[in-house]
């Protein structure tokens, strides 16, 4: 097996602190849900948060434990919130969000919108048939991808289920989808994607979402 592609410490730290855009966060969360090594790396970073809390400076509280207990006593017993039915095979972290329908966007490639209100990034799932070449493209922003099933390969290596592909504006790539398994992934995108070639120019308006 190839070396796994984990989200960078910078990205995990941003996620741990809750500072990433909600769309970007969702793709990182899908990665954390299905990749144990990434989940462990996050726990290390969260433990640093715990350490800083434990030895950080305390600021005296104006309210007391009794105040908090009194507020708790007045609370009605927690009614369990509505549970949303989830689709089989989808990451659980997608449960809070509405998903569009799959629709074809070119030969062997289908896309499905993930509606993330308040996100700056556009989020979608992509499903590509075995052996497909996705059009060569570059970005003006970030393109973060978590592979949910199958694999693809490009200039920066092979990316399989659980891997995280963290591309920024300096990356130009031309992914080739696994010839046997195909590939399903979830993508968050900021800025524009610029395709090359005639196929890419056909796709351009479709990917604008």
């Amino acid at each position: 097996m190839n070396a796994r592609h984990l989200a960078s410490d910078e990205t995990l730290a941003g996620f741990a602190a809750g500072q990433l855009d909600e769309g970007m966060s969702l793709v990182v969360a899908a990665h954390l849900e299905i990749n144990a090594a990434a989940a462990k790396a996050l726990r290390d970073i969260e433990a640093v948060g715990g350490g800083v809390l434990a030895q950080g400076e305390a600021v005296p509280m104006l309210t007391s434990a009794e105040d908090a207990l009194a507020r708790l006593d007045r609370e009605p017993d927690d009614a369990p919130g509505p549970v949303r039915a989830s689709e089989v095979g989808l990451p659980r972290v997608l449960q809070p969000y509405d998903l569009g329908r799959w629709h074809p966007i070119g030969r062997g490639v289908a896309m499905r919108r993930v509606h993330v209100p308040g996100a700056q990034a556009r989020v979608f799932m992509l499903r590509a048939a075995p052996g497909t070449w996705l059009p060569e493209h570059r970005h003006t922003g970030n393109e973060w991808t978590t592979i949910l099933a199958g694999a693809y390969e490009h200039e920066y290596g092979r990316f399989a289920r659980g891997d995280f592909d963290e591309a920024n504006e300096n990356h130009e790539h031309h992914p080739h989808v696994d010839a046997v398994e195909g590939c399903t992934c979830i993508v968050a995108l900021t800025g524009e994607v610029k395709f090359r070639g005639w196929l890419g120019r056909l796709l351009q308006p479709l990917v604008r979402l």
Binding site: R43, A47, G49, G50, L53
Partner: peptide, 8 residues
């Protein structure tokens, strides 16, 4: 997670 990490 330890208590401080959980609380953080």
């Amino acid at each position: 997670a330890g208590a401080s990490t959980w609380i953080a």
